[in-house]
Simulated scan of single mutants.
Amino acid sequence: MTVPAKIPLYRIVEKGVGSVLISAEEIHGFFLDEDDTEQREICLTGVKEGALTRQRIERGELEVVNFRQQRIGMYDLGRVRLHPVSDPEDVQRSYSFLGYTCEYPKAGDIWRRWAAVEPLQYGEWARLPVGDRSSWLHVAQNSWFSALREPVRYGESAIVAINGRFIADKCSLFCALGEAVNGPGGYFGSNLDALADSLSKTRQASPISRVVWSELSTAREMAGGEFVDSVIGLFREFGVEVDSFETR
């Protein structure tokens, strides 16, 4: 995945107020591996100040914005105290704070791709290393709910096609399913409970009648046969037929 040139990608806002306190090109120390539990300073660089009148915020939010400066993602930070860490005469300053972190280390790179001018394309998630696909799924879910979308099918076709060739783990399956149902970057569950919720709401709003699943054997091998059978069982529980075929 090619990461575009930097654009202002993050902004700190006060929850319930909405005014932008600062915006920044980049954030460091926020997207970390889940095993990294050490508390550390989170640094925002390339900062431009907005309505920042005090450095302590009781209910802070970190927003991710696209090239139009529209919100595409959001993280609740709780109480934060911003510390300037560069010369106040600099045009673009840096701030740091202590607070919550995100356990998906590649999410920052993926957010920048989502924020770019070029629309997301089919299959981008499948070109990522397998270990990075959980970060893609996280971004898809976060973006979906930040846009106040329901976990339902927004497309018109009652038939969904899934290519099992690129399903290398459980996260891959949900990336493939979200894209198959709702297009590039789409979301349709991130675990079995969320999939059941999505299918339940979709059946009420705009039912799916059939899933056509190619290379099902590959998905079984890579994501686990029991897990794939649970997914298929959920489809059938909600009245969705599942047809499979192999091209090899």
Rank of each mutant, 00 (worst) to 15 (best):
S86T: 15
Y75W: 14
I22H: 00
H83P: 04
L32M: 13
L128S: 11
Q70T: 09
V242H: 08
S143K: 01
D76Q: 09
L82M: 14
P88W: 14
I232Q: 11
E226A: 13
I7A: 04
R133A: 06
V20Q: 03
S198Q: 03
Y100S: 14
T247S: 10
V242L: 06
G123C: 04
E63M: 01
D36F: 12
L216M: 13
A5R: 10
E14Q: 12
L98D: 04
D36A: 12
F145I: 05
A161Q: 10
S146Y: 07
F245W: 15
A176P: 00
Y100P: 02
F67C: 04
G178C: 09
S135D: 12
S134W: 01
K106G: 03
P151Y: 03
G185V: 04
V85T: 15
T37I: 11
Y104C: 02
N191Y: 10
S244H: 13
A219E: 03
P84L: 10
G73V: 02
C171D: 14
R59T: 06
I159L: 06
V211Q: 01
N66G: 00
L216Q: 13
T2A: 10
Y95T: 04
V211H: 03
M222L: 09
V117Q: 11
E156R: 12
F188H: 02
V117S: 11
D87S: 13
I162Q: 02
H28M: 08
V117G: 03
Y122T: 11
A196S: 12
E25N: 15
S135M: 08
F166L: 13
S134D: 11
A194D: 14
P119T: 10
